[in-house]
Amino acid sequence: MAPEPRNGTWELAADQWHTGFVDANGNGGLLGQVEGRAPSDVLAWLATTPLQWRTQIRYVPIDMSTSYRAAIRTGLPQATLVVDDHFHVAQHANKMLNIVRRRTTATLRGREDLTEKQFTQMWTP
């Protein structure tokens, strides 16, 4: 961030996010890096690469960002997306499991909240 000279406020001078493109199938080297993580940032970098190279890409490992998913679906429609972010996969699975658990409990019992007595009993040794 840098101070705006006209009024002294601070304004963002650079995007805090960067996107790295790595050769996951070869030697793991960095192919490129761009500022930002919007689909347009990814697509702009892809546009700088040869079409023949892009059409040969079969798999793209990404984190669970919807921006990256949208960019790859647009720029590399033949590629299969592979999620390589184990932490967020587990986090998402746990979140979905919790939603199903709550819905099932509410369906079977008609409610999901504990009574004050049940809550106290649960936490009393």
Rank of each mutant, 00 (worst) to 15 (best):
G75M: 06
M122E: 03
H88L: 07
K95D: 03
D63M: 09
A70D: 14
V83P: 00
H86A: 12
I72S: 02
V82K: 03
T120F: 04
A93S: 04
T80A: 15
Q52A: 15
L114M: 06
R58I: 07
H88S: 08
T107F: 06
A106K: 10
V60R: 01
D41Q: 08
L108Q: 14
Y68S: 04
R73L: 14
R101H: 12
L81I: 15
A93D: 04
Q52N: 14
T105Q: 09
I57Q: 03
H92A: 12
V100N: 04
V42T: 15
A106H: 12
W53G: 12
D85H: 13
V82N: 02
L108Y: 05
T80E: 15
V100K: 11
R109L: 13
V83M: 13
R101V: 01
W53F: 15
R103W: 10
S65Q: 03
T74S: 07
P50F: 12
A93E: 10
A70I: 13
F119S: 01
R69S: 02
V82C: 08
T66L: 13
V42Q: 02
Q78R: 09
T74L: 06
V42E: 01
M122K: 06
S40L: 07
I72Q: 00
Q52L: 14
G110E: 05
R73S: 10
T49E: 13
L97K: 03
A93N: 06
V60E: 07
T105D: 07
A93P: 00
A71H: 01
L46H: 03
A47L: 11
A90E: 04
T80D: 13
T104Q: 11
S65W: 02
T74Y: 02
R101M: 07
T105V: 04
A79L: 05
M122P: 00
A44I: 10
D85G: 07
T49A: 14
L51S: 15
R69V: 11
G75P: 01
L114R: 00
A79T: 03
R58G: 08
Y59A: 12
P50I: 14
S65P: 01
Y59G: 10
R58C: 09
T55Q: 15
R102V: 06
L76Q: 02
A44G: 15
V82L: 14
M122S: 02
G110H: 01
R73T: 14
R103T: 11
L51T: 15
F87T: 09
T115H: 03
A90N: 03
